[in-house]
Simulated scan of single mutants.
Amino acid sequence: MASNDSLLFPLVNMDAVANMQNAWVALCLRVQAADGDTGAALHSLFGEPDLLAAIAPLNCILMLASPAVLDAALLARMPVARVSFAFEAGALQDDDGRKRVAALHESGYRILVDGALAPGVSAPVGVTAVACDFTDSEPQSRVLPLVFGPHLAHGVDSAARHAQCARVGYEWFSGAYALHPAPNPAPHDGSSRKRLMTLLGLLARDAETRELEALLKQDPALSYHLLKLANSAAFAHSTAITSFGQAISVLGRRQLQRWLQLLLYARQQADGLPNPLLPIAALRAAHLEALCKLNGGGRDEQDLAFMTGVFSLLDLLLGMPMAEIVGELNLPPNAANALLARSGPLGELLAMTEARQVSAAMLEHAALTPRQWLGSQLHAYHWAIQVSRNL
């Protein structure tokens, strides 16, 4: 039975913030207080010792309606080097709001004004950047010229909207734009895709190492990324890893399966930028694995959950219908149903990892408490951040 304290713990929505180079630079945090008391919810959240450690080295941008909820005891838990604030513009137009922002700035915090100030109202002293929600609108003009940035565009849900925001001066972006890329007029390399599908099939059926090694030798890009990973700080060694056999030995069988699944997303893009799908795939995989473990799943079930999370973006990566991919890979029925229809226990958990906002009712249906949900989020983001830094 979950404790009352655990049930009153706030729901936390986390959104990764990326820069113009597709690198994650921060996380936006929004709290949903179970009893409407945002201050108490923030005390509970920042009282968790693992919060900032799990998302390091990223900082968090706390999205708040007003600075009024920030008392001295709460600020003592929010290091100025790790926490920034984005306040709704409407709360910064009276004397009290402006004084609070000035005091926060004096203490060293970075402040963003979220939304447009009323005509004729200047930005409060201490505001250093602009944030704006573009879920239902496109940018009409350039960001305020008198503040320094980097400026944050959130609710950016398409490649076209991302380009619009970048043109008017936004440098940081959050939203689902990576899941809605611009159409690619270039035909897909059929032989490359065939090799990828073959490798995916080998991974899905836990093939022999020699089969994986033989296929890797046919794919220079994937081979490069595997050797780079094996020689990275994540697997520190005194001697360089120079062969696939060594790499496989260093990583270990189980880790090799997981890293290879993610390495599929690490191929260099035509514009030279990292693939924005990579950290999202890592996030879904680790989150689904953590949720499976919380639900009592064993090691094999957790591995399948991880793989399902990675594979959930293959249709975007390969430019193929998911039904065709699942058919070619001959996946277990529970994974196939999860990927095709978000059905079954695994599919329901996958849908939760994809949801923009999880409700208390969704958690109750999944037999999870808000505190458990936060733990699974932190585990997933910690893994995804490390993947982004090592691939």
Rank of each mutant, 00 (worst) to 15 (best):
D50T: 14
A73K: 11
A40T: 10
Y109P: 14
P49W: 15
L92I: 03
L112A: 13
A41H: 09
D96R: 07
P49A: 12
A86Q: 05
M63W: 05
D114T: 06
S122C: 14
E48F: 14
D95H: 14
H43C: 12
A33C: 06
I111N: 04
A72G: 06
A76K: 10
G36I: 11
A56I: 03
G90P: 14
A73C: 08
Q32I: 04
L75M: 15
D35N: 14
A76V: 05
Y109K: 05
L52P: 08
L42R: 01
L29N: 02
D96M: 14
A54H: 07
L74N: 04
L117R: 10
R77N: 09
F85T: 01
V80T: 15
E48Y: 13
A34F: 08
L64W: 04
V31E: 06
Q93S: 11
S44A: 15
R98P: 12
L75T: 06
M63Q: 13
F85R: 11
L27W: 00
A40N: 13
L112K: 03
A103I: 02
D71H: 11
L29S: 00
P67E: 07
E106V: 07
R77L: 14
L92F: 07
A40K: 11
A33T: 06
M78Q: 10
Q32G: 02
G90V: 05
G108T: 07
A73N: 12
A102M: 10
Q93F: 05
S107Q: 15
L62K: 09
C60N: 00
F85K: 02
M78T: 13
R100D: 06
R100M: 05
N59V: 07
A72Q: 03
P79C: 03
R30D: 00
H43G: 09
F85C: 08
G90N: 06
M63T: 04
S44N: 13
P49S: 12
A86I: 03
A81Y: 10
V113T: 13
R110E: 08
Y109N: 07
I111V: 15
A34E: 15
L51S: 01
L52K: 10
E106G: 06
L74T: 04
R110D: 09
L62C: 06
S44Y: 05
L117I: 10
V31P: 00
C28E: 00
V121T: 15
L75N: 06
P119C: 07
A56Q: 11
M63Y: 02
A68M: 14
A118E: 03
A118W: 01
A91W: 08
L62R: 08
A33F: 02
A33V: 04
R82D: 08
N59W: 01
A102L: 10
V113L: 09
A56L: 07
L52S: 12
S122P: 04
F87S: 00
R30Y: 00
A116F: 00
A91P: 08
L45W: 02
L27Q: 00
P67W: 03
R30P: 00
P124Y: 13
G115V: 01
D95I: 02
D71P: 14
V31M: 03
A86P: 05
V31S: 11
A123S: 01
N59C: 05
